[in-house]
Design a protein around this nucleic acid. Sequence first.
DNA 1: TGATTTCTTGTACGATAGTACAAATCACAT
DNA 2: ATGTGATTTGTACTATCGTACAAGAAATCA
Lengths: 236, 236
Amino acid sequence: MVRKPTSKETARKPNMREAILAAAEELFATNGFNAVSVRDIAQAAGANPGSVTYHFKTKDGLLLEIYRRHCGPMNLRRFELLAAAKRVRDLQDRLEAIVRAYVVPAFTSGSDLAGGGARFTRLRAVMSAEGNEVARKIIAQTFDDTSHAFIDAIHESLPHIPRTDIVWRSHFLLGALYYSLVTPGRVSRLSRGEADGGDAASAIEQLVQATVAAFQAPPLDHAAPARRRPVVGSKT
Amino acid sequence: MVRKPTSKETARKPNMREAILAAAEELFATNGFNAVSVRDIAQAAGANPGSVTYHFKTKDGLLLEIYRRHCGPMNLRRFELLAAAKRVRDLQDRLEAIVRAYVVPAFTSGSDLAGGGARFTRLRAVMSAEGNEVARKIIAQTFDDTSHAFIDAIHESLPHIPRTDIVWRSHFLLGALYYSLVTPGRVSRLSRGEADGGDAASAIEQLVQATVAAFQAPPLDHAAPARRRPVVGSKT
DNA sequence: TGATTTCTTGTACGATAGTACAAATCACAT
DNA sequence: ATGTGATTTGTACTATCGTACAAGAAATCA
């Protein structure tokens, strides 16, 4: 019934390898890289510790493979959505579509893996916070192109805003995005149960709406000090 | 010449203890909790590993003491600034003052410690990402009051926005704030050197401006689906 | 000064970390 | 069926982890 693949070249035993990857992804994203041992991962995947070494050589190699697995598909999807967004005529709608094109793939599946999008984005957030070397290199290589593309697209929608301001605001967007995935419980807590911080759809809508407004804010006047500053000065 | 304090009760040998605290703060904030060993801290502080055990008993105890050291002063300062902000008459200016009252103490010194504000906030960001247990407890206990106070104040300035939306947006604010301290280099990189992500003043101004606009965004229509959604759908 | 408390040092112990490797097992083409 | 390469297992090695503790040095008080 099912056509078995050629076996040569391709490793047709995705069971363990995939299970290890999934377990590592989950554990790294939840507890950080250093807090998780190879043995923890193996146990969660129902595998032997030696199996991890066999498939990925080192713990760093395992992390590297996780990134390799997700970066391509997620960025591909972002570029697809960005291309579609750029075709939106109405400027306000276009900006919203661009932001959405950036946000959505981070929450939903970036590839064919089920629900892996949010998990992987959370992993990136944690690795970023920990200053992980392996992650830093890949991020700078793989995501800066994407970021520049989005920044340029946003800049085209808002020509009167200096590029510097747009960079700052897109940086804030990524921070908000990360934090929403890292600590969803805080939203539920602070809203006293009225909002569900873990609900991806709500998070996306809230984030898109807020971010679009932030991008549209008047530019910072770099030259003129302008407009009296609100009080807030020395204590008492 | 210098009047020595009473010696009783107060430990008048802040040298080592303070050095260890400062070193731990810096290392934890940079590399995360688990990546830093007690020996690393001792070496950075010019102390003996046993000295850390003597002063703080455990590694968790050391982290706990760092939080104890900063939480009080930072929240105190926030409440002072919040009280001042609430007295601002103009609604737009008041909102900006409130946001500023939240942001400024996170960047500048939260206590008498030199430049400790940003470092401690960065530490909180990293601990949050790592899901650290010790940090989580303190955060929920110490900062939720502050957060609620700010959310309420913002809600008073923007009565037409549902509280839920304000919670989300203040959550985004904290995420953006954290991320700005965690990865300042990214801003410099993406702006091609035009902006300095490490400059606290710029970060504050950009963050305040963007966040005020985000708070002022129209509320999400929870009932009506409303307003056609921008295209962005299936692939190709 | 001598007694006593406070801090620092050096060292050690058990636990666990990442990784290596030989033996056992499995999948499959012939 | 059988041999061959791919995978899994079990175990071991070394390094480093957090912490404990006794002995030494410094500071403080009578």
